[in-house]
Each structure stands twice: as structure tokens, then as C-alpha cells.
């Protein structure tokens, strides 16, 4: 289960018994491999939870840790260490895949802070109209009508060039809106990274709404692209 690491909790190294921060993959004192830490993905890289990340540094650290964790290095180690090298590598891969992608990173951080993202909450009886991008509904509906018309024309063996042009224009528009959302998200990243608890809470709420809007838009762009490309 996700949890924000409490970095104040020290754990004794299994090998040298010196207490260390639970997040580390290797004991800072004796350099021995440690069992998979219980912290979040950021702490795997020794990072505070942040949204603006230096991706080049993240990649470098990923490669460095991957090499150090490589199971070949533990061929002659004890059974525990062998197992840990596999488990730590799996954790490191998951952490890297999640953090390097801006959207996955944002979703992950929001989940760490208790936000419900995507369809995780769809099973509940939930009504919060603010989550629905209401300003888009009209356009989304119209676009879906056009897409349906386009598909019907297609299956009848017709090509409606006017409709095609209209859909291409719609795609450009929604691509643009997607870019706007990404820009807005980045602004909230900064607000979250630099803000206090109150500012963070506000940024979180905005990001959850932006991610909803983004999902909506990217589904549309996907549908339009599919229909145009069919």
C-alpha cells in the first residue's frame, strides 16, 4: 500500500547493525544490500516527493542503482541478499517507470496524498459535479456525434470530405487543449513543490481536476485519430 515515508524512522542494518534511513537500498555505513524499503518511489532515489524532477539525474541514478543491484553481483552472496537484489531491482524499475513519466508521476504523488484518481473510485456512489469538465461537455458531445456520422459514412463506403476536415480541425483543437492542460499541470507542480500545506492541498485539488480533464481529452484525441486513420 502507498504511504508517505516517515524518514525519521531508522532501521538497523541487518549486516552491520548501524541504524539507517529505511528508504535506502544499500546501507550507507557498510554498503550491504538492504531488503526492499517500505517507503515511496521517490525515497528509492533518495528524493523528497517532488513534481519537478531532474530527469537526467533520475535516469543516471536509475542506471547506477541498477548496476549495483544487478543479480550477477550477488551470485555468490547469501540467499537473502540474492532475493533482495531481485526484489530491489523490481522495485527500482517500478519506481523509475512511474517517476520518469510526468503524468504517472503526478498521479502517483496525488495518490500518496490520498487523492482518488481515475476509475479507482468509480465503484462508489460519488457525485461531485466539479470533477466533470462541464465546459467541455457540449463540444465532447458534438464531436462524438461527428465521429459516429463519420463511421457510418465509412461503413457505407462513402467519404465525406467536409466531415473529415471538420474532424481534423477538432483534433487540432483538442490537441491544443491537451497542451494547455499539460501547461496548467506544470504550473501546479511548482505550486505544490514550493508551497506550504495549504497551498499543496489547493494544488492537489486542481491537479486532480486537470487529470480528469486530461483523460477526457486524450480519449477524444485517441478516438478521432482512430476514426480518421481507419
Amino acid at each position: 500500500m502507498l504511504k508517505v515515508l516517515d524518514s525519521a524512522v531508522p532501521v538497523a542494518c541487518w549486516s552491520c547493525s548501524v541504524a539507517h534511513n529505511d528508504a535506502t537500498l544499500f546501507c550507507p555505513h557498510c554498503s550491504k544490500i538492504q531488503p526492499p524499503p517500505g517507503g515511496d518511489y521517490f525515497s528509492v532515489f533518495g528524493l523528497e516527493p517532488r513534481l519537478n524532477l531532474d530527469l537526467a539525474a533520475l535516469e543516471q541514478e536509475f542506471h547506477r542503482l541498477s548496476r549495483r543491484l544487478h543479480p550477477d553481483r550477488f551470485a555468490r552472496a547469501g540467499e537473502n541478499e540474492k532475493q533482495w537484489s531481485l526484489a530491489d531491482t523490481a522495485l527500482l524499475n517500478d519506481a523509475y517507470r512511474t517517476l520518469k513519466d510526468p503524468i504517472h508521476r503526478t498521479e502517483y504523488l496525488l495518490k500518496l496524498h490520498g487523492a482518488e484518481i481515475g476509475d479507482e473510485h468509480s465503484g462508489k456512489d460519488r457525485r461531485d459535479p466539479s470533477r466533470v469538465p462541464a465546459d467541455l461537455l457540449e463540444e465532447v458531445f458534438e464531436l462524438n456525434m461527428q465521429l459516429e456520422e463519420m463511421r457510418m459514412a465509412r461503413s457505407a463506403g462513402e467519404t465525406d470530405t467536409e466531415l473529415q476536415a471538420s474532424l481534423e480541425q477538432a483534433k487540432r483543437k483538442f490537441d491544443g487543449l491537451l497542451e494547455d492542460v499539460d501547461k496548467d499541470l506544470r504550473n501546479e507542480w511548482q505550486a505544490w513543490d514550493e508551497g506550504d500545506d495549504v497551498a499543496r492541498k489547493a494544488a492537489q485539488n486542481k491537479m486532480v481536476a486537470l487529470l480528469d480533464r486530461r483523460r477526457y481529452l486524450s480519449n477524444l484525441v485517441r478516438d478521432v485519430t482512430e476514426t480518421l486513420g481507419a
Binding site: 476509475d119 468509480s122 470533477r131 461537455l137 465532447v140 480528469d212 483523460r215 477526457y216 480519449n219
Partner: peptide, 13 residues
């Protein structure tokens, strides 16, 4: 009434 579900992109009129 025009409503939508952000989680799946459904839209209903």
C-alpha cells in the same frame, strides 16, 4: 441534461 463521467469519458444527453 448533458452529463459526463471523467473516469471513462462517457457522455450522456
Amino acid at each position: 441534461g448533458l452529463v459526463g463521467a471523467p473516469e471513462c469519458g462517457d457522455v450522456m444527453r
